[in-house]
Design a protein around this nucleic acid. Structure first.
Length: 549
RNA sequence: GACCCGUUGGUGAAGUGGUUUAACACGCUGCCCUCUCAAGGCAGUAUUCAUGGGUUCGAAACCCAUACGGGCCA
């Protein structure tokens, strides 16, 4: 195509070499990876997109490379208000550092911008102008109805669907014919004049999927739509070339358009980046699996975990577990190590999609919570209750020391207790430590053996009056418990009790559980010795009084 | 319907031709320890790697076909 006609189509178009010079090769050094996360601004980040963003940022940061955020807003129908801000916020919440790119709808950092596609219109024009000049692109005047008719015909004849061969009616128009049509005001798109042949094979090595083979692309795909904005395919080639992305990490729904992308890079004489296509996270829907869906699955929303009280670090651990099959083993060997020390490896990514497993996630959370030190646990509990349980929040602020002491029962040791898999579970285990709640809650005392209220009262009174001493060590405490058991005709040795249960009213286990129930109303709690000590003598008497009423 | 990817226990998976009568982790079951729970210890949980055929002295691993699942273009 002649320059005059190109000028007619794009009056102020710059030569593409302008941009080649403006965005020079990055000087990062050997082995540094440049990746990007390129979402549409259609709302919040969900588990699936978080997964690819997380993997991409990890891959880049492991090599001290660059991870940037680009916004793909060329499909303006789908946009949502504050879309960009929400994405940036969600990434920040997950400590995914944006080295470069969009920070909000008005700010960005980095020297390869703009990073919002709608602001890059003239860049795309320069490159499509080059293709027009080289005869590798052309204006196509097919109307929507015509395209539909073509598709119907192709479906009838069981032919490949799309614009190619004889269906590419405007492929070989002369400049003059084109000019006439444009002057007539006919609407058009700009299409690739595909040099491909469907009978040829194109091979590519994907970092996750391995060796792949596709038929070559032969479709004259649209490069620039009639609204002047580029298609995903074209923008991807231009942007990732100019931004010098080294690794395209994205969902495997893009796999089938890979031949198009390869061809675009060839036609534009760009160096092809490396590709890594991640399989989607799946979920069971009845008997069959499907992709985890932002719309259908509550587990897909990050806010779901926030409400549950599952820490964001747990989500990261989970995502790494499904991303790299050797991570779990590494983490098991280094349970309290900073996960940034684990190096992501493309070779260890499963080519098939993993099923989302809530149980596994909660188990990771349980371990994580058990490894938190008492102060950090307390802080995170404050944060959680402040938002989701104001009443408990007030109490743990008021009784800070008591709360921390309780949290710390059997915590500071090599293999800590694992009581909670989310912060929302804490209330159910701690409420009885606070007078306000203990008095208020409906209480039902269920004892391990058949025993009258009077006998319980006698047992407790005797225990508190004659045996219990706040300063006792755990061993002394337990010995006294045994003495009490003996005095009331309970077995002090569990083995003995198992063999001769008919000689006793019950066992020492029953005695301590009777005490446990009066004090807490629960028949399972953390170590009773610690609980009594934390509550204090006076409080213990009070609970006996409450029981008797 | 065309094309592409995948298929190892309930789940995540290790595994790239012989040390695999399939690692590890979650879950589940049982036992032990034990004042309850949690934790911990021990054991069990795939007669076999979707199915059929082939290559090979030897296959979960390589090849072909079929089935199923997923994706994508519509």
């Amino acid at each position: 195509m002649k320059d005059e006609l190109i000028k007619k189509i794009f009056p102020n178009v710059k030569d593409y070499t302008f941009y080649e010079e403006k965005y020079p090769e990055r000087e990062l050094g050997e082995g540094k990876i440049v990746t990007r996360f390129a979402p549409s601004p259609t709302g919040f980040v969900h588990m699936g997109s978080l997964f690819s963003a997380f993997v991409a940022s990890k891959a880049a940061h492991d090599t001290n490379g660059v991870f940037f955020l680009r916004i793909e807003d060329t499909d303006q129908k789908r946009e949502v208000e504050n879309g960009i801000e929400n994405i940036v916020r969600d990434l920040n919440n997950f400590d995914i550092k944006i080295d470069e790119g969009v920070l909000s709808s008005t700010e960005e950092i980095g020297s390869y911008g703009p990073y919002i596609q709608s602001k890059r219109k003239e860049i795309y024009e320069s490159y499509v102008a080059r293709l027009l000049k080289e005869g590798l692109a052309y204006p196509c005047f097919l109307t929507e109805e015509e395209i539909n008719t073509i598709r119907e015909e192709q479906e009838r004849n069981k032919e490949e669907i799309g614009i190619y061969g004889k269906y590419a009616k405007y492929r070989d128009l002369t400049d003059e014919e084109i000019l006439n049509k444009i002057n007539n005001g006919e609407k058009y798109v700009l299409r690739l004049k595909s040099p491909g042949n469907i009978n040829n094979k194109v091979k590519i090595k994907d970092l996750i999927k391995g060796e792949l083979e596709f038929p070559e692309n032969n479709l004259d795909i649209v490069l620039i739509k009639s609204d002047g904005l580029p298609t995903y395919h074209f923008a991807h080639a231009i942007d990732d070339h100019l931004m010098h992305t080294t690794h395209i990490i994205r969902g495997d729904e893009w796999l089938s358009s890979l031949p198009i992308h390869i061809q675009l890079f060839q036609v534009l004489k760009f160096k092809l980046p490396k590709y890594a296509h991640i399989s989607p996270i799946m979920i069971m829907d009845g008997d069959s699996k499907r992709k985890l869906s932002k719309r259908k699955d509550k587990e897909a929303a990050i806010s779901y975990y926030h409400e549950l009280g599952v820490d964001k670090d747990v989500i990261k651990l989970y995502l790494l577990t499904i991303a790299n099959s050797n991570f779990e083993e590494w983490y098991l060997a280094n349970p309290r190590e900073d996960i940034n020390k684990f190096k992501f490896d493309f070779k260890k990514v499963s080519p098939s999609g993993s099923l989302f497993d809530m149980e596994k996630l909660l188990n990771i959370s349980k371990n994580y919570m058990s490894y938190l030190n008492k102060d950090l646990f307390y802080e995170k509990l404050l944060e959680y209750t402040k938002e989701y349980d104001k009443e408990l929040y007030g109490l743990i602020v008021k009784y800070k020391e008591r709360t921390i002491d309780f949290i710390n029962i059997e915590r500071e040791r090599k293999k800590p207790r694992k009581d909670y898999s989310s912060f929302s579970e804490v209330r159910n285990n701690i409420w009885y430590m606070f007078d306000e709640l203990f008095i208020k809650e409906d209480k039902e005392y269920v004892f391990p053996i058949d025993i009258s209220k009077e006998d319980v009262n006698e047992l407790l009174t005797k225990y508190l009056d004659n045996y219990y001493n706040e300063d006792d060590s755990e061993e002394e405490w337990f010995n006294k418990m045994k003495e009490l058991a003996q005095e009331f005709g309970y077995a002090t040795d569990m083995k003995d009790y198992k063999e001769n249960s008919n000689k006793y009213k019950g066992s020492i286990a029953d005695v301590s559980n009777i005490i446990r129930v009066v004090i807490t109303t629960k028949n399972t709690t953390p170590n009773l010795y610690n609980i009594m000590k934390i509550l204090g003598r006076e409080e213990l008497y009070k609970r006996l009084v409450i029981f008797n009423n």
